[in-house]
Design a protein around this nucleic acid. Structure first.
Lengths: 70, 70
DNA sequence: TGTTATTATACCCGATAAGGTATAATATGT
DNA sequence: ACATATTATACCTTATCGGGTATAATAACA
């Protein structure tokens, strides 16, 4: 899992001053999901991740990851 | 699911002239997964999606989705 | 120190993602 | 028309994600 995602979630959650439980409730996911997300579990469902990211106006998109040209 | 992801997979696969099966084998996922991915299923596992995207040098990253500032 | 709030860990269980296979549909080419 | 290749759909099974709960650890604050 990308640190980028983990860090974003943690930081944005703090920005909005939300507890893990509050974020979970608002996003409509379980508390455990938020935990696993912030702890870097990488077998999470994409739609659930997006549900959480939507709370911050974000979503997962494909991006070039290597050096070479597309 | 974002059309962006679907379109990217389809186009990149064609660019490399791979069948769904070939892409599945190379990425280490099942053929059915490639199908569901290209058909817009949004409950897919993030790590599996990234396995496929890695074949093209891509990966899923969080991106701002709305108009407002972060 | 003690109390409360928040986060982490561990367990159980239902729902379903993912794989595999078979069949059908749709190209593609002759 | 007929093959062949590729993709789509349907069904079954296994593995596990995700939710929930309980408990433990940590943080924050007085």
């Amino acid at each position: 899992m990308s640190d980028e995602l983990i860090q974003l979630i943690k930081i944005k959650r703090k920005d909005l001053d939300l507890t893990q439980k509050e974020l979970a409730d608002r996003a409509g996911v379980g508390l455990r999901f938020i935990r696993e997300l912030e702890q870097g579990k990488n077998t999470l469902r994409l739609d659930k991740v997006n549900q959480v990211l939507a709370m911050f106006g974000y979503r997962m998109k494909p991006e070039k990851d290597s050096y070479e040209e597309g």
